[in-house]
């Protein structure tokens, strides 16, 4: 554990809580991609199956359970509790375009050809593209509420901090997880364009982010 890892996990948690609170307080999930949230729930479910096979630390176990619970709570709010506010016409990203290549790649490139390792690899690859339906939705509608942009900012910050964590671990422990690092870098690239818009539009302006 190092400061980058810890800060990254905290940002991840903050992002998820921001989204959950936004939906809960406004009683609305307008502007939120339910598909992205379902993908994140699948990511946590397939990655944290090792809760049943290995014990790493109390921190590790607690965080995994919290991430799982919060991601399912988010999906529940979007598709059940506040489904009448869910804008499904704009959440039209075709999931098969993500799932088919990700499933294929996780069978081709993994650390061991066992169900748990393939599912872990699948979750790593899927996480790297899971935000695409949300970014697609913002591009399609041309705007995002500022609270949604704060959510995306913390998610992107979490990814950037994980890269710092890997640089740190490589130099201090010689640790290098090529699957996590390559897909982590790819994932962070998706946020760079958004970061630029966030700084120039949301932080310097007020209210909604509108695309040029």
């Amino acid at each position: 554990m190092n400061i980058f890892r810890l800060a990254g996990d905290v940002c991840h948690l903050v992002a998820i809580i921001i989204l959950l609170l936004k939906i809960w307080r406004s009683r609305s999930c307008a502007g939120i991609s339910g598909k992205s949230q379902v993908l994140f729930a699948i990511v946590f479910t397939t990655r944290y199956l090792d809760l049943f096979t290995v014990f790493i630390s109390p921190y590790n176990t607690i965080m995994k359970v919290v991430f799982l619970a919060l991601s399912y709570a988010t999906v529940y709010l979007i598709y059940m509790r506040f489904r009448n506010t869910f804008n499904s016409e704009n959440d039209s990203f075709r999931l098969e375009f993500l799932l088919v290549p990700v499933i294929g790649l996780s069978f081709l490139e993994n650390y061991a050809f066992t169900p748990l390792e393939i599912l872990w690899t699948f979750s790593i690859f899927l996480e790297s593209v899971a935000i695409m339906p949300q970014l697609f939705m913002i591009t399609k509608t041309g705007e995002a509420e500022s609270i949604t942009t704060h959510y995306l900012f913390f998610l992107g910050l979490y990814r950037a901090l994980y890269i710092a964590n890997w640089v740190w671990r490589y130099h201090t422990e010689g640790f290098f997880d090529q699957i996590a690092v390559v897909s982590g870098v790819v994932q962070t690239i998706f946020y760079i364009d958004f970061f630029y818009l966030y700084v120039t539009k949301v932080l310097r302006g007020r209210g909604k982010m509108t695309l040029p």
């Binding site: 890892r5 996990d9 991840h12 990655r47 090792d50 096979t53 290995v54 790493i56 630390s57 590790n60 965080m63 995994k64 991430f67 650390y111 061991a112 066992t114 748990l116 390792e117 872990w120 994980y162 964590n165 010689g174 640790f175 290098f176 997880d177 090529q178 996590a180």
Partner: peptide, 10 residues
């Protein structure tokens, strides 16, 4: 140095 089955990151 990757250990199969033990992933300490989240």
């Amino acid at each position: 140095c990757h250990r199969v089955g033990v992933k300490d990151e989240l």
